[in-house]
Every structure is written in structure tokens, then in C-alpha cells.
Computed example of a mutant assay.
Amino acid sequence: MSFTFIVLTNFYPAANQAMQYAAGLAAKLQARLVLLHVKRASLFDPYVFAGENWRQAELDAEAPTAEAMQELVDRLPVPATVEMATDLLPTLARSLMARYQPALFVLGRPAAEATSADQVSGAALDLLRAAHFPLLVVPVGSTATAPPHQVIIAADAEGFRLDEAGRFAQQLLTNLQCPVTVAHVSEVEDDDACAAALQAVHTSGLVATSQHTDLRCFQHTHAAAGILEAAHTTRAGLLVLVARQRSYLGELFHRSVTARVLEHTTVPVLLLPAVEAPVSETTATDQRPDMGGEAEGLLY
């Protein structure tokens, strides 16, 4: 199976680090890259009233940028192409998915003091994850290298299934051939929930039952802090977060977990779309009432 990664890029450190990490991953998986350069990310098209002539004029003015982007491509160790666009819009994202069928989008997360670059990548992150595309977010300054030598999957006790876009991760974890750890975070010691988390990962097919998987449980009041501790303790080079398609209120309630992880992580994070497992695949642990703690779901 041939994979394609679409990398949101520019000439700033965060995007460059994301591109280098993606290139290392692509080299391991024999994948190709598409370097996507946009000036803005938005839900609304700024040229909807001005017309396509104005959009084309802006693109024509970016000819020097396109040439510089091509120089980046020529220095990469894997096949790559350049896509130039004025705006990352939902329609463009869907068009890219149709044309390239990418395994994931890759974004760099700038440092906290960054301004303009952060506005673009932050808006792109919101747009792409709202559409439930698989996302790889690489924090600037990360010391993790690709391919990773250790992968950690943050999981709760609820069952899930990978959707069509998320199945790339199955092949990814198989091809990486590195140790995989399932980490469960809870406020109290709960061996049953830990075992259910491992079962949920295996039942989903994310990791084959034949592939050795370690189980580590962490006790922490806040889910995000516990996940970050787990990634640090295991020296992970890639952190996988499962993202379920919940109700609107559920999305709002649990969104802080992933937001906090992305804000503070020093490890690249793979946000993996998933859907709820049928009731028949849930465990007894899943039937416990929701006590309102943020550790009850790892959602974005």
C-alpha cells in the first residue's frame, strides 16, 4: 500500500520540523509527501464575492514562493510535490483528499510566543480536526526523530472502531516495527479499566493481538497531564490519541484534554479519527455512569 502525507508548510521552524519528521516517517514507509503552502486557513472563502481573478492574481504574485518551495522538495529524501493555494478551506481539504487520498495531514505546532504562523496552523488544526481527518501534529523543538522507536497509545476503557481514514494507523504501527505501549489514565487505581483499555485497542484492530503490546497505567487527577507523563515516562517518539465522533456537547466538554496535550507536548501527536463501537463490543467498564471527569474520554 502506498501512502501520501500532506504537510502544511512554510519557511518557519515549526513547519520545517514537521516536514523533516514527515520525511523521516515517509522514508520508513516508502510514502510520498505533498507540501501544501497556504497563506490563510478559514471556514469562509475571502474571494467568494471578489471573484476568481483576484485569487489567481494573488497566486501569480507568489511565484517566488513557489520556486523556493520547490527547492525544499529537491532537498528531501523522499518523493514530494508542491501545492500552492491562497486559503485552506473545507472545499480545498476535501479536494486534496479526493485527489491524493492522503493517509494524514501533517502540521507543525509553533512555540507559544509565535504569532502569525501560529494563527495559520491553529486555524488549520481546527478546520481539519473538525472534518475528522487524521492529523499528525509536530511541536517545534521536539527532540523526537522519525521513524519513532517507541509508540504510546492513550486509551480509555470505551470501545471504538477506526473509520476509513483512521485505518492507515494499523499499517503504520505494523510497518514501524517498534514497541507499542497502551497507556490508561485514571484518578484512582483501577485495574479493570486498564485491562479494558488494552482490550479496546486490540478489538479495534489498531494493534494486532499478535503484536506485543505493553500496558501502563497512570494515576492522575487530570487526563491531559497524565497522558503527558505517560509519553515522557515511556520516552515515546509518537503519541496516538483516539478521537471519537461525539455529540456537540460531548465535543465541547472533552475538547480541553486534547487541547492541553497539544499545548504542552514535546512529542509528535497522531490524532486518529474513530467511531463508537457497537454496544455488543463494549465492556462492563463502559457501562459505568459518567462522573463528569475529563479522564472519561480522550476526544477532540
Results as ranks from 00 to 15, higher is better:
residue 44 F to Y: 12
residue 219 Q to R: 14
residue 273 P to E: 00
residue 139 P to N: 03
residue 69 M to K: 06
residue 173 L to G: 07
residue 270 L to M: 15
residue 240 V to W: 01
residue 176 L to V: 07
residue 150 Q to K: 11
residue 99 R to K: 15
residue 167 R to Y: 08
residue 249 L to T: 15
residue 216 R to T: 07
residue 116 S to E: 15
residue 170 Q to P: 07
residue 172 L to Q: 04
residue 223 A to I: 07
residue 183 A to Q: 06
residue 209 T to W: 13
residue 39 K to I: 00
residue 43 L to K: 12
residue 137 V to Y: 05
residue 70 Q to F: 09
residue 217 C to S: 15
residue 110 P to R: 01
residue 91 T to E: 12
residue 290 D to N: 14
residue 206 L to E: 14
residue 7 V to L: 00
residue 220 H to S: 10
residue 241 L to N: 02
residue 63 A to Q: 13
residue 172 L to A: 08
residue 299 L to F: 10
residue 180 V to R: 07
residue 143 T to C: 01
residue 128 L to H: 13
residue 136 L to K: 05
residue 260 R to L: 09
residue 166 G to R: 06
residue 114 A to K: 02
residue 288 R to Q: 09
residue 240 V to E: 12
residue 70 Q to H: 15
residue 278 P to L: 00
residue 206 L to N: 09
residue 8 L to D: 00
residue 233 T to Q: 13
residue 125 L to Q: 11
residue 61 A to Y: 06
residue 91 T to N: 06
residue 194 C to Q: 07
residue 233 T to C: 07
residue 23 A to N: 10
residue 106 V to A: 02
residue 239 L to M: 07
residue 115 T to G: 04
residue 273 P to V: 00
residue 219 Q to L: 05
residue 6 I to L: 04
residue 61 A to H: 10
residue 7 V to Q: 01
residue 186 S to L: 00
residue 193 A to N: 07
residue 192 D to P: 04
residue 17 Q to P: 09
residue 161 R to W: 12
residue 141 G to E: 05
residue 280 S to G: 02
residue 137 V to L: 14
residue 162 L to K: 13
residue 230 A to S: 15
residue 53 N to D: 14
residue 88 L to M: 08
residue 51 G to T: 13
residue 139 P to R: 00
residue 295 A to V: 12
residue 83 E to H: 11
residue 157 A to I: 01
residue 253 F to S: 03
residue 3 F to Q: 01
residue 97 M to F: 14
residue 185 V to Y: 04
residue 234 T to A: 12
residue 127 L to S: 02
residue 201 V to W: 08
residue 49 F to E: 14
residue 81 T to Q: 05
residue 133 F to S: 00
residue 76 L to Y: 09
residue 16 N to H: 12
residue 134 P to D: 00
residue 16 N to I: 09
residue 226 G to E: 04
residue 89 L to P: 10
residue 284 A to H: 13
residue 274 A to Q: 02
residue 162 L to H: 12
residue 257 V to R: 01
residue 118 D to M: 02
residue 199 Q to H: 14
